[in-house]
Design a protein around this nucleic acid. Structure first.
Lengths: 233, 233
DNA sequence: CGGTACGTTGAGTCATATCAACCATAGTGG
DNA sequence: CCACTATGGTTGATATGACTCAACGTACCG
């Protein structure tokens, strides 16, 4: 038993009822339970690193993981923030390539590691599973192409507005209405694809126009409609 | 029989021996042969349009198809050029969404249309097929993320150099060494994600430095190594 | 208390976009 | 056959968005 987390078996895991793993047979579920290993990670920990062998993928039980590519002179390009229910690293395993992104813990997390061999076995032997995997990949591909167009054609202001709306929708807001995903200015810049200073200036413009409220790193959207207008979608 | 092209049956089609369709059973092959319809398209024809219902996907038998998203004020962002052996439109079918790109004929083409229902049936019933599909999607996803980072972080000069090298590798060169894929300056700009004039200026810089030769729309790479240097990968 | 990381602001620069004019070419229709 | 038009290519001038650099403020942490 390689399980080190609070969740004792895969049968009890919420992932089991998620679309991806729903289709596993009893036998496969047992084997998954044996093969997987759950681990706790602390903020800042590296889950996997770009260029390393893709030894498996990770299911996010809780916490938040930052997934990014390292570009020119070490500047991060953030691809996604993964949260509960997301699965990361599968792309490289399926493609049988080294990891092409780095995954770093953004908020303390519990992850289940699924070894590459077993993921490939599942994908080979279980129809629905591989179909769900395919759907997931297609969804991400659509998003990637869409963001590609944005970054190529839209201004920093538009992209920043769009990104704020996106992370608000994806991660929700706390009791005070602040977006739950808390980012540094630099991280925001690394999503939007711009410089830190540009983000700061745009944020204060939004703030001055009462579109958002800022409390430290926390952002609250005061006028979603107006922000949509800035995003110009 | 809905087949209108020179290729009479799927059994004889080169796609059959390609990785994607290799795994089809005799029965599936027969059904594919019945369900598919081959069509000839002329340059400029629209294969499918962004926002329309994804009624099926297309296999490229020959010719070249331009796949792009329409962004701000109708400016195209070119996602890919598909050639013999490529399959387009599958993403939207799998995701059960309207097409999120437009496909337009770049060079006269013969395409086989596979209806959405049958593609989904194949993907449901044939393990290897859906697995190959998954691999394809993962490959494209990797490329998309990679290009995203490029466009966000690299200069027009670097990206243009990279794109020229890429299309040279993908489409090859003719007897005189010119890249087979012939593009307008505007199309090059719409791949790179910049303005037409910027492409023109960069191209003439490359030309003046004897890195490339230009004959009308045709481009010949004289010094691949030097161009790699410009690409700065 | 110093150190480190992050945030902010201003000034200056640069890459790139935009705008405008002009040329070349090819296709069209009278 | 010749205007006419459309499309694409090129160049120069100009504008500007965004980046870079530098300085300084702030906050948290061991």
């Amino acid at each position: 038993m390689k399980n080190h987390s609070k969740i004792s078996t895969c049968r009890e895991c919420f992932f089991h009822s998620s679309s991806l793993f729903k289709s596993l047979t009893e036998e496969q579920l047992d084997k998954l339970n044996y093969e997987k290993s759950c681990q706790h990670f602390r903020r800042g920990d590296i889950i996997y690193r770009e260029g390393n062998k893709a030894t498996g993928c990770y299911c996010v039980n809780d916490g938040i993981i930052k997934v990014f590519k390292t570009g020119v002179e070490g500047k991060e390009q953030i691809i996604m923030f993964a949260q509960k229910g997301d699965i990361i690293g599968y792309r490289s395993v399926i493609s049988n390539e080294p990891f092409c992104t780095t995954a770093k813990v953004h908020e303390d997390a519990n992850l289940c590691f699924i070894p590459a061999e077993f993921l490939l076995e599942l994908v080979q032997k279980n129809h629905s599973f591989s179909l769900n995997m395919l759907k997931l990949a297609c969804k991400e591909l659509g998003e990637a192409n869409s963001f590609l167009t944005d970054i190529a054609q839209r201004s920093v202001k538009e992209r920043l507005a769009e990104v704020i709306l996106l992370i608000r929708r994806t991660f929700g807001t706390d009791a005070d209405g602040f977006i739950k995903l808390v980012l540094t200015r630099e991280e925001l810049a690394n999503i939007v694809g711009t410089a830190t200073e540009s983000v700061i200036r745009q944020l204060s413009e939004f703030k001055n126009n009462k579109v958002i409220e800022i409390r430290g790193r926390k952002i609250k959207v005061l006028q979603p409609n107006l922000l949509e207008r800035y995003a110009n979608l």
